[in-house]
Structures are given as structure tokens and as C-alpha cells.
């Protein structure tokens, strides 16, 4: 290997390590966005303005399926990551496809929930509470959509470029993002849905 190639490799390695730290920081900024949306949701909880009450809004089994899909998708992403580590590219792609399908199912269920709510006149325009609910949950959904786009891009890159250092690094960061969304969902489940069912 010539000196220049070594240098390029070193340069790339350093860049990728920087990006990992940078991505963690980005996730922190995103966590603050969600923290404030959660805070707003809690503040607005009783501001239903005579509209539908939280207790009448949600369906436990529906939320259960959503949660199952998302948690399983995190598992399948983990399996994809393990396959990449073990140098099994096809298995990795397969698990990413599974992750994608689970993510799409989650989004589908979420959209169905929203449509049902809107059909019951529980629109985001109806009350401050519903504005906060839709914004919090839809922001998470938007993140999931972006994550899905990322997974599609990564499937393409795995197939086209294989296990290069940048691809592995990107996949690692995408994994952070995906698991982060899982944690946020657990927050949503505990703050938005669970209190209503316990009551």
C-alpha cells in the first residue's frame, strides 16, 4: 500500500469516528425536541375544550400491535447489524427488508389510527389537547418515515457497494437512529396511551 492510500484510509477512519460522535449529538438535539413535545402534551392534557376525552380515543389492541411492530423492527435491525458484522451480506439485506416491512406496518397502523380519530371528529383542530397529541405522535411517525427511507438507501448501498467502511458506519448510525425511535415510542406508550388504559 502506498503512503497516499494509507493517508486516505486514516483520513476516512477519522472522519467516520467524528461522524459517530456527531450523530450522538444530533440524537441529543432530537431528544430535546421530543422532550418539549412530551412536556407540551402533558401541559395540554386537560385542555380538551369539550371535545373527545383521552379515555375515549385509544384502542388498546391497536396500540399493542403498533408497539409490537416497532419493537420487533428494532430486533430485526439488530439481527441485520449482526449479519453485517459476520460478513453475511445477503442475510443482512434480508433482515433490513424485514425491518422495513415492520416499519411500514407500524406506519400503516398509525395512519389508520389517525384516520379513525379524524372520522370521529377528533381532529387536531378540535382542541389544544388533540393538537398536542397529533403533533407528538406524528413527529415520531415522521421520524420513522425518514428512518425507512434511510433503510431503503442502506439496502441499496449494501447491494451496490458491499461492506465498505463508510457503509458500515452509516448502517451503525442508522441503527442508533432506529433504536432511538424505539425508545421514544416507549415514552409515547407510557405517557400518551398507558395512563388512559390504567385509569
Amino acid at each position: 500500500m502506498t503512503g497516499i492510500e494509507n493517508l486516505l484510509l486514516e483520513h476516512q477512519q477519522e472522519e467516520l469516528t467524528n461522524r459517530e460522535l456527531g450523530f450522538w449529538l444530533y440524537l441529543m438535539t432530537d431528544a430535546i425536541i421530543f422532550a418539549l413535545l412530551f412536556a407540551t402534551y402533558v401541559v395540554m392534557f386537560s385542555n380538551t375544550a369539550g371535545g373527545t376525552e383521552p379515555a375515549q380515543l385509544f384502542d388498546l389492541s391497536h396500540v399493542g400491535w403498533e408497539t409490537t411492530c416497532l419493537l420487533l423492527s428494532s430486533t430485526s435491525f439488530g439481527l441485520a447489524w449482526l449479519a453485517v458484522q459476520a460478513d453475511k451480506r445477503q442475510t443482512a439485506v434480508l433482515w433490513l427488508v424485514v425491518t422495513c416491512l415492520l416499519g411500514v406496518s407500524f406506519l400503516g397502523l398509525e395512519i389508520k389510527e389517525f384516520v379513525d380519530l379524524i372520522n370521529q371528529q377528533a381532529t387536531p383542530q378540535r382542541s389544544g389537547y388533540l393538537s398536542a397529541f397529533f403533533t407528538l405522535v406524528a413527529t415520531h411517525g415522521l421520524h420513522v418515515s425518514i428512518g425507512l427511507l434511510g433503510i431503503l438507501v442502506m439496502i441499496g448501498q449494501l447491494i451496490m457497494e458491499g461492506r465498505t467502511a463508510p457503509v458500515i458506519s452509516r448502517l451503525f448510525r442508522l441503527g442508533l437512529f432506529w433504536h432511538f425511535l424505539d425508545i421514544i415510542w416507549i415514552g409515547i406508550f407510557s405517557v400518551v396511551y398507558l395512563p388512559v388504559f390504567i385509569r
Binding site: 407540551t40 395540554m44 380538551t48 389544544g128 393538537s131 398536542a132 403533533t135
Partner: peptide, 28 residues
């Protein structure tokens, strides 16, 4: 991020007719 959130919420109020900060329907 707090600025992004608050500006986005005001935007949602204005563009989509939500009620984060309005005078009526539970805005705060």
C-alpha cells in the same frame, strides 16, 4: 431545538388551524 419546536407549533396553529397557543379551544 426549543426554537424549532416553538416556531413549528406556531406554524401549525397558523397553517393547519391547531390550538397550541390560541385564545380558544384549549390553547395555552
Amino acid at each position: 431545538p426549543a426554537l424549532t419546536v416553538v416556531a413549528a407549533m406556531l406554524g401549525l396553529d397558523r397553517t393547519l388551524g391547531m390550538h397550541f397557543f390560541t385564545n380558544e379551544l384549549g390553547g395555552n
